[in-house]
């Protein structure tokens, strides 16, 4: 077990080093360098030079690379070009809202996916499973921003049951926690819906697959009820691939939240990323991308560890 964890940790660290390098390469691949993009029309050679000096861009790229690493290891992500505030400060300001959205959507998606997937897996090939399949496809095929807007239109405008925007920051919740929660419902539903579609389909398929395995026949031959076999034997084995796919789908869920946050004007990282990307604020963009990469790598690591707990073979081999 310890051996497996150590091995996975080493791999993850290696992956993170590559990730940081890729992000560095990305932000420095801009034609003419960031100064050009920032200055735009005003990009006289002198102004560019001055700005480069101010941003620390006047040294060779390999020096910049190592300086960047040094800063990263100290937890410094640089300053936003536009807002002139430390990136870490900006990120921590928006992070809370995004985490709420992210975690809420994931919990919703996992709970629904397990329920729906069980029904689909058990009725595989018959009408309930087909019906579920049709809904899964429909949920997947609708653009996220369209779904979000429709939610706003109906829940917020037509029926006026839920607020559609104007959420405050998690740190200074003025109107109270209930109001904050009400603001979260629609964004979570929108992001969650997209994830439920893929996750439940995947889980349904793995329940179906597990049900066709020999040990199910053995368990039934022992006289267990189908329900006991399903919950006592099949569920645990079918969860393993779900955990793996969940770990892998973190970036996908974030992509969904970028779009959803911009639909709901939701002050989260996705929204910040979008605004910063549009205004070429590289330190902010690379900071967020990096954070996300780290979350994903750690998420995958966690998924592997959970799988180790679910499947004894992973530990002992």
């Amino acid at each position: 077990m310890i051996r497996m964890i150590t091995k996975r940790l080493l791999t993850s660290i290696f992956t993170l080093i590559i990730l940081v390098s890729v992000v560095f390469a990305m932000t420095h691949a801009t034609p003419g360098g960031p100064a050009f993009s920032i200055l735009g029309q005003k990009a006289t050679p002198a102004a560019v030079k001055a700005l480069n000096a101010r941003l620390g861009l006047n040294v060779p790229w390999w020096d910049q690379y190592f300086i960047w690493w040094g800063h990263l290891l100290q937890g410094r992500l640089g300053f936003s070009y536009l807002l002139n505030r430390p990136v870490t400060e900006l990120i921590s300001e928006y992070l809370g809202n995004t985490l709420m959205l992210y975690i809420g959507a994931i919990v919703l998606a996992v709970v629904l996916a397990i329920g729906i997937g069980l029904v689909q897996g058990v009725t595989w090939g018959r009408w309930p499973a087909r019906l579920i399949g049709a809904f899964q496809l429909a949920a997947y095929a609708l653009p996220t921003f369209f779904v979000g807007t429709m939610f706003i239109l109906y829940f917020g405008v037509e029926w006026q049951v839920l607020p559609t925007g104007g959420i405050t920051n998690l740190r200074d919740v003025h109107p109270g926690i209930i109001d904050y929660g009400r603001h979260l419902v629609l964004p979570i539903l929108t992001v969650g819906l997209l994830s439920v579609s893929g996750l439940s389909r995947y889980f349904g398929a793995s329940v179906h697959e597990e049900l066709n395995k020999d040990y199910v026949r053995t368990a039934l031959a022992k006289g267990l009820t189908f329900r006991a076999v399903l919950f006592g034997h099949v569920l645990r084995n079918a969860l393993r691939p779900l955990v793996t796919i969940l770990g892998l789908s973190f970036p996908g869920i974030f992509v969904g939240s970028v779009l959803v946050e911009s639909v709901f004007n939701y002050p989260g990282l996705g929204y910040l990323l979008w605004r910063s990307a549009l205004s070429q604020d590289y330190p902010v963009v690379s900071g967020i991308v990096l954070l996300l990469g780290v979350i994903t790598v750690v998420g995958n690591l966690l998924a592997d560890l959970v799988n180790g707990l679910l499947d004894p073979r992973e530990i002992y081999d």
Partner: peptide, 12 residues
Amino acid sequence: LLDALLALPGLV
């Protein structure tokens, strides 16, 4: 390298 790229959300 692929792991690192997969950790970056494509749309971002």
